[in-house]
Amino acid sequence: MTKSLTKNRTVDRHFDLRHVFEIVMVVLIIALATISLWPNFSGHTTESLDQNKLKYDGYVVNQRFNGQGTLRFANQDQYTGTFANGRFSGKGHYVSHDGWEFQGSFANGKMTGTGTITQNNQIIATFKNGELQGQ
């Protein structure tokens, strides 16, 4: 009868450990599922991207540039203005390392709408309705 009691205690301990392991695994699965479904960060941030080739200071929504911000490039170009879905969109100011600047409207990352291109504080071209008007 002593052997039988010893055997039952071993089985009980084995069952207890398995039960604890199952509970820990269920809690871990629930925790990981919650983290994966957690909403993405939205708010102001300062980020270095592409091995510090891009530096962004501004607002993000769902891991994309959205709202007002400044993007600096490794070649010293800089865009300050509005972003939508990660692209230049709305009013902005682009400064090139070559010395020219564009002040005006952007859509889908491109100069559009109205605006002026200046160099050395002189207007060298204008945009109207998304078309280059010349010098």
Rank of each mutant, 00 (worst) to 15 (best):
R18Q: 14
V24G: 08
S4Y: 02
L32Q: 11
V24R: 11
Q76F: 05
H14G: 11
D98G: 07
G113D: 12
I23M: 11
N8L: 08
A74H: 00
T34L: 12
T10P: 02
M25P: 09
E131W: 00
Q103I: 01
Q51R: 03
Y79M: 03
G69H: 05
S4L: 08
R9V: 07
G43H: 11
Q76I: 05
K53H: 14
K3S: 13
T45I: 15
K7A: 09
A84P: 00
T6P: 00
I23K: 12
Q133E: 05
F21Q: 15
H97K: 06
T114N: 14
R64V: 00
F102H: 02
I29N: 12
K3V: 00
L5I: 05
G109H: 04
G109P: 04
Y79V: 05
G69P: 07
G109L: 05
G92F: 00
R72E: 12
Q78R: 07
L54D: 07
E47N: 08
I123W: 08
I29V: 10
I117D: 13
S36E: 05
S36M: 08
R18L: 06
V61Q: 14
A74G: 12
H97P: 00
M1W: 07
R9D: 10
G130S: 03
I123Y: 11
T2K: 09
A107R: 09
L32H: 10
N52D: 13
G99W: 04
N120M: 15
Q68H: 09
D16H: 12
H44L: 15
K91D: 01
P39T: 04
T116K: 10
G113Y: 01
A74W: 05
Q122C: 03
A125D: 15
Q133M: 10
T112G: 04
E131P: 02
A125N: 15
Y94N: 00
H19P: 07
N62P: 13
Q119M: 15
V11S: 15
S48A: 15
Y59D: 10
N85F: 03
A33I: 11
K91A: 01
N66I: 03
V60K: 11
N108P: 06
D57Q: 09
M25I: 14
W100C: 02
Q119E: 13
W100T: 03
G67M: 12
D57L: 01
V61W: 11
F73Q: 04
